[in-house]
Simulated assay, not measured.
Amino acid sequence: MPRYFFHIHIGDHVVVDPDGRELDDANVVWGDARELALQLLQGADSDPELLKAVLFVADEAEEIVLEFPLTEALMAEPVDQPEEDGGTLH
C-alpha cells in the first residue's frame, strides 16, 4: 500500500509529517486531507494563521500529489437531491 505524507505549510513555517499514512491509492488522499484540515481548523481560534495554512501531500517519491488549502475543507459538499417521479423538486 502506498504511503502519503501530509506536510503543513503555515506561512514560512513547515510542519513535516515524518511517518505518513498508508492509503489504498491517491483517490483517497483528498478525503484524508479534508479530514485533517477540519481537525486542524478546530484550533484556528488560538492560531488564526491556520486559516492561511496549506497541506501539501507528497507520495513516497516526494512528488506533490495534492495541494490543499485548509479553508477548502470548510466548503460544503454537494448534497444529493432526491428524485421524484416526473415532478419538480421543491
Rank of each mutant, 00 (worst) to 15 (best):
D17A: 11
P18W: 01
D19V: 02
G20P: 03
R21F: 03
R21D: 02
R21S: 11
E22M: 04
L23G: 06
L23N: 09
L23C: 09
L23A: 10
D24S: 13
A26T: 03
V28Q: 10
V29D: 10
G31V: 06
G31H: 06
A33Y: 00
A33G: 05
A33W: 04
R34Y: 00
L36C: 00
A37R: 11
A37W: 04
A37V: 12
Q39N: 08
L41W: 01
L41M: 08
Q42F: 09
Q42D: 14
Q42C: 02
A44Q: 13
S46V: 11
S46A: 12
D47H: 00
E49R: 14
L51T: 07
L51C: 13
A53R: 10
V54E: 13
L55R: 07
F56I: 07
V57G: 08
D59H: 01
E60P: 03
E60T: 12
A61M: 12
A61R: 15
I64M: 09
I64S: 05
I64E: 12
I64P: 02
V65R: 02
L70N: 06
T71Q: 12
L74I: 05
P78D: 10
D80R: 12
E83L: 11
E83N: 10
D85M: 12
D85G: 05
G86R: 08
G86H: 10
G87E: 14
T88S: 09
L89I: 11
L89Y: 14
